Simulated assay, not measured.
Amino acid sequence: MRIGLFSDHPPTSPGAASLLRLGEELERLGHRSIAFFRPRSRVGIRVFRLPRRGLRGLEAAISHTPFSLGRTAGRIARRNGLPHLHLLQGRWLEPWLSLPEPLRPPPGPVVRRALALVRRATWAGVESARVRDALLQVGIRTPIHLLPWETSLAAFSPPQGHDLRRDLALPPTARVLLHVGDLSRSGRFLLGAFRALVGPWPEAFLVLVGGGPAAEELAGEAQRLGVSPRIRLPGDIDPARLPDYYRQADVLLHVPGRAPKATPVLAAMAAGLPVVTTPGPALVGLVEPG
């Protein structure tokens, strides 16, 4: 099947990268994906025409943003009778969802555009059950599917080329507790929890992947708690190494915030890595107790 991917993100942006990963998965399944991105402009958004040659023969459309190209994908799908999947990014709804339902104001322009695109699509893809439930509450009747498009399953398929324990100078018998993400919010909590494990679990090591000024502060905190020899703070590592690190760790420690997605948890699931976490809105329908 020839599938068009439509996004208003510039091709080199993180938002576009997630859509390209989805395209890679489609290619792996035998489809052909053709991406249409909005060019970056120094003077803001500029008008441009989509190449007709690329649009010919499309059999399905997938949109990623509720703006110009997202609506273009919807029009092309309706005009040609094509199935249309709209991937609704939770961040468009998060400021609105963060308020209790009785206190939510009427949806703003971005939320209205996103909801209108979802209503006209054949299917909607969302990142969490929280976003799905919010859509149902506002009367969306479009079939909604939980789709972890931020994670590339293909990245976990090649033979492992990186050794987590060797890279971080860990003993071969080390039991690795891995955390990937924002250390400024979760680092101190994880260090405190890990301190309780040091005695009963002497082979445990805590690996905190993430950069920024919080890493230096956590190194001092680990020293103060007396767990410094069992802590590794590698900073921001090459993304190409992460799939192997997920596959070689023993458990993922995840501290959820208010973000509408839990990419490290999805990556751990792709790697077959057990997850220890606390409740969070992005984990509803994704992680179950036990």
Rank of each mutant, 00 (worst) to 15 (best):
171 P>W: 06
58 L>D: 05
274 P>R: 09
91 R>M: 14
42 R>W: 12
267 A>C: 12
221 E>P: 07
97 L>T: 03
174 A>P: 03
175 R>E: 12
23 G>M: 06
286 L>G: 02
231 I>E: 00
143 P>Y: 06
16 A>G: 03
7 S>K: 00
259 A>S: 12
268 A>N: 00
75 R>L: 14
281 P>T: 00
87 L>R: 05
244 D>W: 00
173 T>D: 15
109 P>L: 07
88 L>F: 07
109 P>R: 04
227 V>I: 15
214 A>R: 04
235 G>N: 09
38 R>G: 03
137 Q>V: 08
57 G>Y: 09
72 T>S: 14
239 P>T: 06
170 L>F: 06
111 V>E: 14
120 R>H: 09
104 R>Q: 06
117 L>F: 03
193 A>W: 13
243 P>I: 02
149 W>C: 03
110 V>M: 11
2 R>A: 05
259 A>G: 12
64 H>F: 13
107 P>T: 00
254 H>E: 05
159 P>N: 07
220 G>C: 13
83 P>S: 13
30 G>F: 09
79 R>A: 14
244 D>G: 04
48 F>A: 08
192 G>F: 10
147 L>M: 08
59 E>W: 10
7 S>I: 01
191 L>T: 04
27 E>A: 13
13 S>K: 05
102 P>W: 12
21 R>G: 09
49 R>A: 15
193 A>N: 13
217 E>A: 15
193 A>S: 15
175 R>K: 13
158 P>C: 05
70 G>Y: 02
193 A>K: 14
116 A>T: 06
92 W>R: 08
282 A>I: 01
290 G>E: 06
157 S>N: 11
68 S>N: 14
44 G>R: 10
279 P>Y: 04
172 P>M: 11
217 E>L: 14
202 P>Q: 12
211 G>P: 04
99 L>W: 10
219 A>Y: 07
288 E>T: 10
232 R>P: 06
4 G>H: 02
162 H>A: 07
67 F>H: 15
200 P>Q: 14
44 G>H: 08
181 G>L: 02
139 G>N: 06
151 T>R: 00
143 P>C: 08
169 A>C: 11
48 F>T: 09
276 V>P: 02
90 G>W: 04
60 A>H: 07
26 L>K: 06
190 L>V: 06
95 P>G: 09
210 G>C: 08
52 R>E: 15
153 L>Q: 07
25 E>C: 05
121 A>I: 00
266 L>F: 11
59 E>Y: 09
197 L>E: 14
246 Y>E: 02
15 G>T: 04
197 L>D: 09
255 V>E: 01
107 P>V: 01
263 T>P: 08
142 T>P: 01
138 V>E: 02
238 D>G: 05
27 E>R: 13
141 R>W: 06
275 V>T: 03
88 L>R: 02
12 T>Q: 11
250 D>F: 03
151 T>L: 02
266 L>V: 11
265 V>D: 02
35 A>H: 10
